[in-house]
């Protein structure tokens, strides 16, 4: 299990400590205010992309991300809708890691499950890290 990591310490197959994730109604409203989406259909459930955003935030909290990082891609599959205030458990790990000419490509996969252990959402976060001073 990994916590408080430097990006350069990561290896493919590493896993992070599981963490709980739940979203309040106020947090949903603040998120929708920021994105501009109407809250009409999100009175009892969490907008699916908000789950991705919060997992990305946790990744940023657990790993010291170097300058030059870019979030290049995102994949998501919903297995069911997450309910507001529901506590999910997130398992996340390093799915891919490669380096070419100083540019590092990494992908993180996260699996969100409910209290019964049933899948709610899976996602894949792709990032690219260029060396300092390089714009790609």
């Amino acid at each position: 299990m990994k916590t408080d990591l430097e990006f350069s310490d990561l290896r493919k197959g590493d896993t992070f400590a599981e963490f709980p994730l739940s979203v309040t109604a106020d947090e949903v409203l603040a998120y929708l205010d920021a994105t501009g989406e109407s809250p009409a259909i999100w009175t009892q459930h969490v907008p699916p992309l908000f789950l991705d955003a919060l997992v990305v935030a946790e990744l940023l909290a657990q790993v010291t991300i170097p300058k030059g990082v870019m979030h290049t891609g995102q994949e998501h599959e919903s297995h069911r809708a997450a309910r507001i205030d529901e506590v999910l458990t997130v398992r996340m790990g390093v799915a891919a890691l490669s380096e070419k000419r100083g540019v590092t490509l990494a992908a993180f996969e996260a699996d969100l499950r409910d209290a019964a252990g049933e899948p709610v959402t899976t996602m894949r976060i792709s990032v690219m890290v260029a060396p300092d001073g390089v714009t790609v």
């Binding site: 979030h71 290049t72 995102q74 994949e75 599959e77």
Partner: peptide, 22 residues
């Protein structure tokens, strides 16, 4: 996600998937 939610309603959160690149 907003556009898909407008078309599918809660089914977007129940069954939706996406794969994108910036």
């Amino acid at each position: 996600s907003e556009a898909m939610g407008a078309a599918f309603g809660l089914a977007w959160a129940e069954t939706g998937s996406f794969k994108v690149r910036w």
